[in-house]
Amino acid sequence: MKAIEVKDLHRYYNGVKAVQGISFDVNDGEIFGFLGPNGAGKSTTIKVLTGQLRPTSGSAEVVGCDVVEDRQELKPQIGVVFEYQNLYERLSARDNLQFTARLYGAKKERVDEMLELVGLEDRSKERIQNYSNGMKQRLLIARALVHKPKVLFLDEPTRGLDPGVAREIRSIIANLADSGVTVFLTTHYMEEADRLSDRVAILHQGEIVAIDTPEALKEAYGEEDRATLEDVFIKLTGKDLY
């Protein structure tokens, strides 16, 4: 079964083509890497798939819900970790999660479960304005999971984090896939995408230029025996990542 199905999706902003006719599927329980340089249309695609933006044309379904027509039905089925840390800074981690749990009608126990999952149970009553970036990022993941979504959208979840914290986050993501959650991941870190993703799509100027497993892409586009996903990316987009 497909968790996400996108067909000929276009999205324009004031005449600027952010996404141009992309089509792809994401399988149930898969970690799908969505890669591209800045301005390639990754965030726009996530916004369309999560119901924040209407597509200009084309269609997209997430867990069988049309992102335009069935927007309200879609919402409880997805979780989103944004590329920025949008939390209530004056509130504690527990208060932040309780609010989200209330919105989704999730059980109170889920708050404790999530705090434990991301290792914040000991500091759950502190205001999060005192938290480090890494702790906030872990809380964002907990918030996105509190209502047991079927699909999790992660927009640059490890950007700007210490290597140690980034590794913890990657470990959480890997475990999620094991528990059956479909993960839609955008990242600048090719090694991360390579390690985590079952399949990746490379987006360039609003179009998908390649889509397959990391291994298959390296084989198809790598010029050396030990080609990395980053080599493939640069070859296909002509751009460095940073």
Binding site: T50, G51, Q52, Q72, K75, P76, I78, V80, F82, Y84, N86, L87, Y88, E89, T100, L103, Y104, R143
Partner: peptide, 14 residues
């Protein structure tokens, strides 16, 4: 300003 509105928009809140 805190962009928590974006999180609301993807939640069941209208």
């Amino acid at each position: 300003e805190s962009r928590t509105l974006d999180a609301m928009q993807v939640s069941p809140v209208t």
